[in-house]
Amino acid sequence: MADFINTATVMVSLAICIRLLTYRPSPTARHRPTAAWLAWALIVCTGGLALAMLLFGSGASGVAKACHLGLLVVLALVIYRARGNAARLLPED
């Protein structure tokens, strides 16, 4: 079970990171610095998590890993629903 959770955590983290990296704004989109920093932080955190788990494994307990995976799945759904647009995660100005 732990191997499945580790593998799923890496895959979901990579999916979030790749979706954010491949986001292409529309030509009429305006730059929102807060959204850009949010996207950058999400890319660093999800990419870093995936890289750390691939290189070093995870020392957390099974329950913590399952909760972490659950949070990542919810975040992935929100990111994909917004089509990779981090600005949609924030309230309008």
Rank of each mutant, 00 (worst) to 15 (best):
M1R: 04
M1I: 06
D3F: 04
F4C: 10
F4M: 13
I5N: 00
I5A: 07
N6F: 05
N6H: 11
N6L: 13
N6C: 09
N6V: 11
N6G: 02
T7W: 08
T9D: 00
T9M: 02
T9E: 07
T9C: 08
T9N: 01
V10H: 00
M11V: 12
M11N: 14
V12W: 08
S13P: 07
L14Y: 00
A15L: 08
I16L: 03
I16W: 09
C17V: 03
C17N: 12
C17Y: 09
C17F: 11
I18C: 08
I18G: 09
I18L: 13
R19W: 04
L20F: 01
L20C: 04
L21M: 00
L21N: 06
L21W: 00
L21K: 04
L21F: 00
L21D: 10
T22W: 02
Y23V: 02
Y23M: 02
Y23I: 05
R24W: 01
P25H: 04
S26H: 05
S26W: 07
P27R: 06
T28Y: 04
T28Q: 09
T28I: 10
A29F: 03
R30Q: 13
R30D: 05
H31Q: 15
R32W: 04
R32T: 08
R32N: 12
R32Y: 05
T34A: 15
A36E: 09
A36R: 04
A36N: 04
A36G: 05
A39Y: 01
W40Y: 15
A41N: 05
A41D: 10
L42F: 08
L42G: 01
L42Y: 01
L42C: 04
I43V: 11
I43C: 03
V44Y: 03
C45F: 10
C45S: 15
T46R: 04
T46S: 12
T46C: 13
G47F: 01
G48T: 06
L49Q: 10
A50G: 07
A50F: 06
A50H: 00
L51V: 10
A52E: 09
M53G: 08
F56G: 03
F56L: 11
G57R: 02
G57S: 02
S58Y: 00
G59P: 10
G59R: 13
G59V: 07
A60C: 07
A60Y: 05
S61V: 04
V63T: 14
V63Q: 14
A64G: 05
A64S: 11
A64P: 03
K65A: 07
A66H: 03
A66M: 04
A66W: 02
C67T: 12
H68R: 11
H68F: 14
L71I: 11
L71C: 14
L72A: 08
V73R: 06
V74G: 10
V74T: 13
V74L: 15
V74W: 13
V74E: 11
V74D: 13
V74N: 09
L75V: 03
L75Y: 02
L77Y: 05
V78I: 10
V78S: 10
V78P: 00
I79L: 12
I79R: 09
Y80M: 06
R81I: 00
R81V: 12
R81W: 06
A82R: 06
A82L: 02
R83K: 15
R83M: 12
G84I: 02
G84L: 01
N85C: 14
A86P: 06
A86S: 05
A86L: 05
R88E: 14
P91L: 08
E92D: 14
E92I: 12
E92T: 14
D93R: 15
D93I: 14
